[in-house]
Design a protein around this nucleic acid. Sequence first.
DNA 1: ATGAATAGTTAAACAATTGAACTATTAAAT
DNA 2: ATTTAATAGTTCAATTGTTTAACTATTCAT
Lengths: 150, 150
Amino acid sequence: MAETNIKDLVDRYIAVSQSVEKKAGALVKGQIGSDLTNDQHFTLRYMNQVGTCTSSELAEVFDVQKSAITAIIQRLWEKGLIERTRDEKDRRVVYLTLTEKGKDLYSQCEKRIHNLVEGLITKFEHHEINQFINTFEKLNQILINYKLEE
Amino acid sequence: MAETNIKDLVDRYIAVSQSVEKKAGALVKGQIGSDLTNDQHFTLRYMNQVGTCTSSELAEVFDVQKSAITAIIQRLWEKGLIERTRDEKDRRVVYLTLTEKGKDLYSQCEKRIHNLVEGLITKFEHHEINQFINTFEKLNQILINYKLEE
DNA sequence: ATGAATAGTTAAACAATTGAACTATTAAAT
DNA sequence: ATTTAATAGTTCAATTGTTTAACTATTCAT
């Protein structure tokens, strides 16, 4: 990678990633905004994928302090979307799971987002999307490793 | 794009984009965090690129309400990083520019981020990066057009 | 058995955000 | 020309997400 190009790449990457994040976020919020914030939606999405998790795990995945997770979890709990259950063997640990209401709400979000994406995704070739997400996931892995090395 | 794949693509995209955003954000914050928040850095970056802009323009670009911009601008102004000058012809308009102090601080941020990226970017082929950013910019344009159509 | 580590919460403070009401100014309509 | 619309920006109150530090409760290590 030529030295002189890094500046331009950084400029382009930061500009485009920020713009896409804000605009995609606004679009998603337009679909689910009355029920959930985007961060709450992401949290439900992760919990739906893994089934059960802990606050520490969420803090690790989302790369924030545990107290930030406590706040989000508390709000989801107040809405009746998640359950907290203490581990009987290690009573420090609290397991988090979706309630039926949480699963239902997540399903509704999923459907709306699915419809949204369906209308946008046709502009891309199958191959282009795969390549894009593959590189994105590679970048993610590099960032994860970089963080571990510190 | 096969119908059955959309769900998986959405899952992968949302997971990876959120993860990268948080981790890259944390990394950048580690470089510039004592001086600026990430949003403040993005704002300076944009102003450095375009030279002069208005609050309305920033609100459009960042896809937030103008009152959100007022708050960010106010904080940057309090730090002496930007100037506000009224348009003499249309006195509703306020032009925003970087002060010398703002330009200097931005340059320092730029250097640190440049060094950071330099260490990460070697893991990618030139072609892979270009393809990735091209697709990202294409996605951004699609989102911008989608918003205009509403 | 004691000291260190871990899981999670609480509290104070701050940044970013929205939405509604507001001021000041300009443009449009008739 | 006067009134009405629209535009640029600010202010204020409320909410969310965030960090840091102090804290409780529990488990691990040696």
